[in-house]
Write a protein that binds this DNA or RNA. Structure first.
Lengths: 348, 348
DNA sequence: CTGAAAGCGCTTACAG
DNA sequence: CTGAAAGCGCTTACAG
């Protein structure tokens, strides 16, 4: 294993100075075309690559972005939210397209965050990706801001929090779903998913549902609800708890709006285990349009968030921040995906 | 945004030399305890962090690992194999535990691989994670080896390929499943999944199945097969093609061994759409034990690969390689997970 | 235990 | 268009 070539080796072989090698390899117009080509050929033969540590140190930036994934602490590793995975994939892609590298780290919100990368000049900027409220972490966010760290947050814009955020409009998502459900003739609803300030996404979806109900002159006070984090198992349990709230099956809701597809799948399993059929006896819908939702039985009616676009926006806006351009909060509009679990094939 | 503090700033404030600051911060025993504490306190107040670029440049290593994920080119981003996701999570965790950072990149096997990180000193070693054969990439692997790049490959050990690999024993996995299926009384089998040299994992699973059949004196020549990559959609189509191979339903196999859980889920959907019930009419089993397999209808009998352990082994062995220790190929033993889709609740 | 100094491999003013 | 030189912020022999 021979030690790696440096720009001095190339310079020596090409009979030029090291500065010229550096310029040639970075395609500086300052260097003679013929010289440039000669240098590049030698570099290739030696399999020379610019040392990023040296280059970054000198240029004072790292040409890499860091992604901090905050998973619900109750989840174990195997249960990474599929929605995050799509985001991970699209962020990775967008980062590479922009010529940056990506450092990935799964963080616990309660962790020390020592590895914030930007502190150590390992990354030029941070993307924070997690469900839930950032309320508990305001101090950390303020600290980031104070240090001049460039970061972007996935989630609902919230003027109370430091930093810029890009998110999907959950209220509209819930509203679109509510409208559809109402148009199908459903009148009594239940909501499965945490509905508290710690889960602003879910809360927004519920709010949208209620708005659609109000517009259809339905009474929103009777919407039953049971807490669930975004897992299949939590959805299963929440559905069981929900059912116990009703004294008799005749009181059951027409439709259950689940705050995520994973919850919806657990809900359907719970209903089935009680002998109920979806959507014949009761409609169940989800949110996220995760990969398997279309293959569920029945295929899930859900709300799609454009993760591809989201990843691109996150990356391009972080890059803007790094270039010291101003960036505004953004809210993306989600889209309804109608399949079978809402009962639309049966009731209209 | 004030510019970041350097070790010289700390030194100035502490009234010591910069060397001492550097030593104190790296917990060198050479520095006086009281001095060390004073320096550390100042560093914390200034929110000082060692510049990794400078440190890495000086120490000639980056304290980071790179993960190159090779996805089946036919898949789009949203369809990342769930098995890979578990591996990603466990590798991330193991890397962090070892005090390293992780660079992640989704690569197309056909790409140029310019970002190999190790070339550019951005990473100390590489983990290659992908399904399928490395045959087409032997040249690139040799090149890696030639350059002295430390890398480890997930997959079946293959003496023909350069580098060390860590993998799961697919032949044993298939064998365990085959044994179980045979013990349940199934006699005629089909296999869903690519069975060619380009898919050594799948091939190994099929081989294991056939070994179990042979041991039970079943004729292995009659095992029907249809190609499928590891997606639900491919499983669906493959199952349809498979069924067309039989002239009448009475010829149908007793059990279909799918090369992955995703394929199995597609297969079940296809059978169901033809009016067949799983496992009453036909048993279907998968491989991987992905998250949703336990929630499928029916819950999937499958083979579990310990991704947590796999991630840890990949990281710890790569670290050994980096320390110039010798590392041997490893094969992990998979485990049978019996649920309902094999018909075990019904036939025994 | 501490400090002065060299040097990791680049990029980029500065001078020609 | 090219080269000599400075310097990015560290770590670590070397000398005391």
């Amino acid at each position: 294993m021979k030690s790696k070539a440096t720009s001095f080796d190339i310079a020596h072989m090409a009979g030029v100075s090291q500065s010229t090698v550096s310029r040639a390899l970075s395609d500086s117009p300052l260097v003679n075309q013929e010289t440039r080509e000669r240098i590049k050929k030698i570099a290739q033969e030696l399999n020379y690559k610019v040392d990023k540590n040296a280059s970054n140190l000198r240029r004072q930036h790292s040409q890499t972005l860091a992604l901090l994934l905050f998973e619900d602490p109750t989840n174990d590793d195997s249960l990474i939210n599929p929605f995050f995975i799509s985001m991970l994939a699209s962020i990775t892609k967008a980062t590479a397209t922009a010529g940056y590298d990506l450092l990935v780290s799964f963080q616990n919100m309660n962790d020390d965050w020592h590895n914030l990368y930007e502190d150590t000049n390992k990354a030029d900027g941070l993307i924070l990706l997690g469900y839930g409220s950032y309320t508990d972490y305001e101090y950390k966010l303020s600290q980031l801001e104070e240090q001049g760290t460039r970061f972007l947050r996935w989630g609902a814009p919230d003027k109370k929090h430091p930093g810029v955020s890009i998110g999907s409009d959950n209220e509209i998502g819930g509203y679109l779903m509510g409208q559809h459900l109402v148009s199908l003739g459903h009148k009594r609803f239940a909501f499965l998913g945490e509905a508290n300030v710690g889960a602003p996404e879910f809360l927004g979806r519920l709010r949208g549902l209620k708005r659609a109900m109000s517009e259809a002159s339905l009474d929103t006070t009777g919407v039953a609800q049971a807490d669930a984090i975004s897992t299949e198992a939590a959805g299963f349990e929440a559905a069981q708890r929900l059912m116990q709230q009703y004294s008799s099956p005749s009181d059951f809701p027409d439709a259950i709006f689940c705050a995520s597809d994973l919850i919806a799948m657990g809900c359907i399993r719970a209903l089935r285990s009680q002998g109920m059929n979806v959507p014949e006896d009761i409609a169940v819908v989800g949110y996220d349009n995760i990969q398997i939702s279309q293959f569920a039985t029945p295929p899930l009616t859900t709300v799609l968030q454009d993760t591809l676009l989201a990843g691109e926006l996150l990356v391009s806006n972080l890059l803007k921040l790094i270039r010291n351009e101003t960036v505004e909060d953004m809210l993306m509009k989600p889209q309804l995906v109608v399949r079978e679990s809402c009962g639309c094939k049966l009731k209209p």
